[in-house]
Design a protein around this nucleic acid. Sequence first.
DNA 1: ATTTATTTTCAATAAGTTTTGAAAATTCAA
DNA 2: TTGAATTTTCAAAACTTATTGAAAATAAAT
Lengths: 168, 168
Amino acid sequence: MKLSEAKAQFISSWGAFGTHWGINRTMAQIHALLLISPDPITQDDIMEQLNISRGNVNMNTRELISWGLVERVLIPGERREFFTAEKDIWKVATQIIKERKKRELDPMLKLLGQLEQIDGDKKDKNVKQFVDTVGGIRKFGGQADKMLDVMIKADENWFLGSLLKFFK
Amino acid sequence: MKLSEAKAQFISSWGAFGTHWGINRTMAQIHALLLISPDPITQDDIMEQLNISRGNVNMNTRELISWGLVERVLIPGERREFFTAEKDIWKVATQIIKERKKRELDPMLKLLGQLEQIDGDKKDKNVKQFVDTVGGIRKFGGQADKMLDVMIKADENWFLGSLLKFFK
DNA sequence: ATTTATTTTCAATAAGTTTTGAAAATTCAA
DNA sequence: TTGAATTTTCAAAACTTATTGAAAATAAAT
């Protein structure tokens, strides 16, 4: 297989993959393109390689930046802005985990905590099932939360870092 | 807070949560409703409680069944079919992990393996970056795959089960 | 065998999301 | 400043996905 063909396949399937994870196709494709580009590239490069409009590139690169996965870089003597992606997959993964935890898991756990405080007869099986379910999810979510914190901190902590090295 | 109010909030936010995970809102809402229902309920109950059409309930319950999260139950003397959800959150989570692994991770790893075999000069930085990126993702994905297998098997294995009990 | 209850299907439609592209804003250089 | 290059914005259009509802299929009861 030639590089150009492999590239196209990688970008396309990374895009499809993204849609199963709440990420829009184009954003994932831009990310894929940046991951396999050795040097920083411009808006126009992205437009050309993915056949998408300027506005689309602009919105999605901003979103990737807000996720901490992509950076703007200034090339001396160049007027235009260039983009580059973090290439260390471990860092990419922890960054995504960190953001999703903050955006989704933490607020959900907060809500579940509130929902557990309903008033009602604990002998009513409807009340009991509700409290049990919500409690169960909150407990499970709390454990997941702690586990993810460990993973996120691994990079910043020598001991955990060496412990988890074999995963890299 | 009253039960009815808490129920509505739980269903609505579980639905919103689902959309961030590639699950459609209604499917997640039906799942939420079943999770907090102590007894099996009918299509009509779901239609009424969530204000959705019969066809919609039908499609989404089938989908939940195909994910192994919901079961049809036959109530003696009843003509209609009833639905009930697995209530053990640990089982729900491992079931979801199992399915997503099968549907998404495994095929992705297969593809990445193929993409690594491109022909081209390894000294070309474009080729090098491509191979490094794809290789890195594949390696990471492979580790995640193994880790998930451990989690999934925990329920079927006494030793791992007791090891992971504290997470439950 | 016929009626009645219930479930399933799927074309049409509605709702939601993404993309475009051109105008406005910004940035830099002369 | 002014003008050219570049980036940003956002309303409208295109596209994608979810939902409806009524007809067809199936299953149970008489």
